[in-house]
Design a protein around this nucleic acid. Structure first.
Lengths: 219, 219
DNA sequence: GTTTGTTCGATACATTTGTTTGAAAAACTT
DNA sequence: AAGTTTTTCAAACAAATGTATCGAACAAAC
């Protein structure tokens, strides 16, 4: 009855399991991770997963609900100030997106973990996909769309969506394919490189929109 | 005599296993697929995988060697005519890339399968990654770089690499995240939509390069 | 101190996993 | 047609997997 430790958010074991589970799931994917790996990393017993989460599958979902989604909301919140402004340029919007998704994490490891989990869900949707799509991806893309739409009022719906996707995909991809990028660029993925990526992304995408703006001027 | 199996050259057990294995691995990932699923789909015995390939891991590698790589080479071959031409515009290069990666497959299912396999290797590199990277990705990016470099002779190395990656990532992503795209665009991923994507990709990326061209003119 | 509810951990359990085996069947060679 | 090699299959194997059980440890309430 009493909420002694029932405030699940402060149960150390539960928290440790969530942390390690997120790390391992991001790193290896759902099927490749075993409950024993998780509990061993969290320095507890095999049964702990079933006790606290009722099974492996539910633990996976809980990772998204309690770890991934809050972070996604935090990232999105960085873009909301732009929405209140009366006017902003495409460059400002795109740079804000790039900065949010490249630099909006507390460290590199968190950024990679976050990107990996979403990429895995896109690659092989599970029950978590619905949650992620409706609670994070759709609102985020919607926000981006509104922001861009405000700058480019004459661009038609479909084209606008494509621009949003092109921008979003580039950032996502530069985040998650960092091994390939590091190899292709022959560079470390350090903070400086991330800043370079923000600049590149912004430059490339702002000009990418020029087609739309030219079309707009004609109309 | 009843040689229903041996004489049909496209029906030998080995080929069927490779086909079904590729389909399943692309669909679910290495760890999530069981040998029994594969052999059942290929209408043969569990032992067949070990007899023909020496194990699950090696079958996975063989899928890349015998199915994925040849297809990747075929795709790349579509770009090679451009290299022989004395001069070509960025638009021609980018459109050729988009067309190769969007329309260069015999059907939609093959395109999706192909994209999924590479994305999975990027997400979680296995022994196959080295093969894919050195035999397909590196040569492809190298070719794209040479083609773009020919059009934009004054752009520095690093920037050129970033442009190549931005272009490559967009196509890859539009290919593999088709569920998300279809949902965001509220459209089917049919042939018409692919052609629309080619146009968008080309338009967006050609303008994306304008920053580089402007910088080039200044120099 | 006793009770009561919660957390934890060693162990057990039933499945499922990839792989092996040995013999039958088929295909090929002579 | 007989002999040899290659291929297929059912069954078995050990290891690993997710989950369930049950009692000990613990903390708070009485």
């Amino acid at each position: 009855m009493n909420h002694t430790k029932r405030d699940a958010n402060h149960d150390p074991t539960r928290e440790r399991i969530l942390d390690e589970a997120e790390r391992l799931f991001a790193d290896q994917g759902y099927a490749a991770v075993t409950v024993r790996q998780i509990t061993q990393a969290a320095q507890t017993n095999v049964a702990a997963v079933n006790y606290h989460f009722g099974g492996k599958q539910n633990l996976y979902l809980e990772v998204f609900r309690q770890r991934w989604l809050p972070r996604a909301r935090r990232i999105r919140a960085r873009l909301e100030p732009l929405e209140e402004r009366e006017h902003c340029t495409p460059e400002e919007v795109i740079r804000a997106i790039a900065e949010a998704l490249f630099l909006g994490f507390s460290d590199q490891e968190e950024r990679v973990r976050h990107s990996m989990l979403i990429m895995r869900e896109v690659t092989k949707p599970s029950a978590a996909f619905e949650v992620v799509a409706s609670e994070a991806v759709r609102p985020f893309l919607g926000l981006v769309r509104r922001l861009l739409g405000k700058c480019l009022p004459e661009v038609d719906e479909q084209r606008l969506s494509l621009y949003c996707l092109s921008i979003f995909f580039q950032v996502l991809h530069f985040n998650f394919a960092r091994n390939m990028v590091a190899k292709a660029m022959n560079r470390d993925y350090d903070q400086d490189f991330l800043r370079l990526l923000v600049d590149h992304m912004t430059d490339f995408s702002v000009h990418g929109l020029d087609g739309a703006r030219a079309r707009e001027r004609e109309a």
